[in-house]
Write a protein that binds this DNA or RNA. Structure first.
Lengths: 202, 202, 202, 202
DNA sequence: CATGAATGAGGTTTCATTCAT
DNA sequence: GATGAATGAAACCTCATTCAT
């Protein structure tokens, strides 16, 4: 294992354990078997080390979300709200798979990134998709259908909750199939639950 | 306002702004109009000040959850899973009310407690209730009914997600009615969604 | 002697000895009989300590130069160049006196300020007065007199040289009268030398 | 270009840009296309590299000053003070020429030598020549003439001022003729100014 | 009750230098 | 001749905590 790999490994370990800010660089480095000076031969700052551990994962994750979003954009306007979840469900395995194979990176992003550019990583993505959903809602309303037995803010909250669950379970559970099944179940609960609300109101 | 009250007030302000770890005790104390020496006449450590601001809220919140749990315990074993949500919905206003009137304390617990015994405050409670639900599941199974169109772990996850949403929205939104309505809506989505799953499977 | 005074004294000593950049804060502080932490109770940065030792002197010195400049502004345009030196000579004692009584501060400004906002302190003032002199020169030319047996750039250089000499001698010599006499002599050399050039050419 | 030449070139560039102390050896070496290890095959220390860039220039400059001094020594004792400037003026082109063709070296010596044995390079030479002038003064006095409408210390200061101006202008201006003209003008101001003083007093 | 001076261990970063290969 | 990994001391700065007054 090269020095850099050792540094990355030790950095990952400490960042996971204490979070970015509270992980002492000294510990990271000495745990890897080196001195502080050695570290700066490889990274310019502590932050750079963190990004070396997370940038790729963050980008990869964003790419997947982006591809899902594009898929959703192709849905006919009047069906968007109803079918967004299906659209998402279809991609779920890819998403879970990605998070699974990038567990550490994702954990760093979600739980240990305080003090870095990735703090609130998830909410940032959620905010983007909020605009997307808001757009879908307005289109649906124009098309004459009454759909909102559910307030948009609630819908938004539900989505954020869903992703939080996704994050939690992926970071806890190692079996991909279980995760997919659970998240699909939850998505179904969401879908059926929302549909029942729509129907009740209309 | 007594010295102690001023310290508490200033401490709250700084912990809310920067989180437990990053809030310099110096700032807290000088903002209150005192010096560091004075502080240590009232609290042994910085951490103690934090707990002075949070212990009560944490306990109060726990008490409510505990009372909901007791309520649920009274449900007949064979109806537990189905009616837990109603049981919870019934208590929702109390819960929201409590969080609302203890916004600062709850925020401290949920967002600013990194480095204290309360980090991961919510998950800790959720883990306790997991045992509870697990118990319900086993009882139901004994009673011979097939209920789980939904896996218990999924149910657990859903509950944790629900509480996260509750936390999020309470920390973002100041209007109690809005919060209650949204959380009730979400609970309905949950309930209807789950019921539809049960029915489909059975 | 208060702690702050000790810190200032030690700071002055080290800055004078090694210059701002090369003076280790550690030495400054431990020489004063304290630890690094103590220092930061009094100054936010090393730079702030330096400015505590120099700001006042810099301002005072600037004020005197400014008052000389205003004096010069009052001279009739056609006599400016010829009488600027007299005007300056008249204020010389004040200037020397000021530098004398602020020897340390002036030395810090002139020799030890590398890395601070005061590096090139003198040249900065010279640049300002350059504009002033250039103005005088143009006015003189308009008034029809041929005066420049001396190139403006040369004149500028002479002035900068003069101030450098002033700085040097003040920092070396402790007797005010001697300094005044020497600088007055030099000013006379300048004046007569320049006049002889003017006359030769015209 | 040999390795050593590359190192020298890069060293010159960085020392000129940042000064001896602030120029990181790392930058010097990597800019030259090598690594730190390579450097130490050629020079024992960073300082040694600096001297490799300056020793020759320093010596050459000193030699010229020495030859001027020898020239002056040949002047009859009773005419020394009056004719020193002529003697110097005669050598001025040589001096300027030398500085011109060794701009970089001279700049290093005058502006970038902080932290090396050459800091205060100019003043060191001036101090040596002080002894020389002092000697001239004593001889003149012995010979019975009243010469000093000007104090020897003032004369000394003037000379140092002159050299500072020379340094400044050479480092700023690239055109040799301009430099020679300006410095000659200044020398004339000096000479005429001093003569007028002598005459006035006598 | 409160002060405020001081500590000391901690943090991140820089850099000349060494040395095995 | 050159590499480049690594050192180690030094730099500036932060902050919870102590303690004499």
């Amino acid at each position: 294992m090269t020095t850099q790999e050792k540094l990355l490994k030790s950095g990952k370990k400490w960042f996971l354990k204490k979070g970015y800010k509270s992980a002492p660089l000294r510990s990271i480095v000495s745990d890897a078997g080196y001195t502080l000076g050695a570290f700066y031969g490889y990274y310019k700052t502590k932050e750079e080390l963190f990004y070396a551990l997370t940038d790729e994962t963050a980008k990869g994750f964003g790419d997947i979300l982006f591809s899902i979003k594009k898929e959703m954009d192709r849905l006919p306007a009047d069906q968007k709200l109803y079918r967004m979840i299906d659209c998402y469900l279809q991609q779920l395995p890819v998403l879970v798979d990605y998070i699974q194979t990038n567990r550490d990176g994702m954990t760093l992003l979600l739980k240990c990134s305080d003090g870095t550019k990735y703090e609130n990583f998830f909410d940032a993505y959620m905010k983007k998709s909020r605009a997307q959903i808001e757009g879908a809602r307005r289109l649906s309303q124009k098309s004459g259908k009454k759909l909102s037995g559910i307030a948009p803010a609630t819908f938004d909250l539900l989505m954020r909750g869903y992703f939080d669950m996704l994050a939690k379970i992926v970071l806890e559970e190692r079996d991909k199939d279980t995760i997919c099944r659970m998240m699909a179940e939850i998505a179904l609960v969401y879908k059926n639950g929302m549909i029942s609300l729509f129907e009740k109101k209309s």
